[in-house]
Write a protein that binds this DNA or RNA. Structure first.
Lengths: 203, 203
DNA sequence: TACCGGATAGAGCGCTCGCTCTAGAGCATG
DNA sequence: CATGCTCTAGAGCGAGCGCTCTATCCGGTA
């Protein structure tokens, strides 16, 4: 039998994280790539270096609870990146374009596997798993608000900024999906340039 | 035992369509709502009023082949609608806005269940089922070309029209997903207005 | 030392999955 | 009627699903 410390040393990938965190991250990554239905709890626990017992200890709500937490993890992850990119330049148009390029390069680097962590999980479950849908809706809302604040800070009026921020997020999501399916950076790069043009038309 | 004719009379829903066509349409609708993995071949055959034997007779390639044909069906379906809407008005900006509003109303009318028929099927399978991914990529490409021709007809230059058409499709896809998750027409309506503004900025 | 609760471990439950296989129905030919 | 072909019919296969359950390990406390 392994001690806890020995066990942690064996799971090379994710460092000194706790079991619960490893499970959430693994679930998020797997569902991002395969969707909700195709990601089994046994696969998740194995790749996380945990066991089924641990998984159900930390997530008594089962796969559904785990998926909701995985979405919230992806939400925070992308919100951090988006926030950083928006802060790195003063003009919102350039920042959004940078963001699209970064998404394109990241997607390409993952061999077109890692699309939006929320989309793939949420789409298959949107109709009949309310917890998961709610978590996804909250993620989109948070991202919209980040863009909204940036646009407001650049002097765009409330109503226009709200609608524009919503469209920026929708376009990035759609373009990421298009890029993934087409296995090409071009849809995302085009979207970035067009969004920049659209934003600049308000100034 | 039922004769073929008697059997066709019993399947109320889809009229006098052949078995193969009923299976494709049912598969397309189910995968649109539930995704690829969550739609079982038994469920598809039952709801289509067919049997497993019939399904595997017409689709010896199994679920994968069926999914690819379902995507192509959804492709044609949406391409027809898109083509009609683009033809119904001279100005591309207004036509795209109309299209977004129509998508929003259709999505709402289906109780937020019927999103893009291609997206849900393709996303879960994009990584490891090449046939399905290819069919989805071809669908997006066809839709882009429809928009491209409309923009070209309105006098927009080649390079600009290509990038703009790509962004229009990406934005509509992303906004439809956002609307579905948020259970609100607003993301699609906002996207329609912003796309119209973007298109008009080229004239 | 003995004990306790958090965490780990995995065998096994009932069920459904995609798919195969054999049998037969219906219909156009001679 | 006999033959051959397309299509229908559904029982059943092995595998995997989400989840439950009992047994055990471990560090901290008394």
């Amino acid at each position: 039998m392994k001690t806890k410390a020995q066990h942690d040393e064996d799971t090379v990938e994710q460092g000194p994280l706790g079991t619960r965190e490893r499970i959430v991250r693994t679930a998020s990554r797997l569902m991002q790539r395969q969707g909700y239905e195709a990601s089994g709890v046994k696969q998740i626990s194995q790749e996380a270096g945990a066991t089924l017992g641990s998984l159900y200890h930390f997530f008594p709500g089962g796969k559904q609870q785990l998926a909701a937490e995985a979405i919230r993890h992806g939400d925070r992850e992308f919100a951090d990146i988006l926030g950083e990119m928006l802060d790195s330049r003063p003009d919102p148009a350039g920042a959004i374009d940078d963001c699209a390029v970064a998404l394109a390069e990241g997607l390409h680097a993952s061999a077109w596997l890692d699309g939006c962590p929320v989309t793939a999980t949420a789409l298959g479950a949107a109709g009949h798993l309310p917890d998961i849908q709610r978590a996804a809706a909250e993620a989109f809302q948070r991202w919209r608000e980040l863009v909204y604040e940036k646009l407001r800070g650049a002097g765009i009026a409330e109503d226009e900024a709200r609608e524009l921020a919503s469209t920026v997020i929708s376009t990035l999501e759609g373009a990421e999906m298009a890029a993934q399916v087409a296995r090409s950076e071009e849809p995302l790069r085009a979207a970035g340039r067009q969004l920049a043009r659209l934003i600049n038309s308000y100034r």
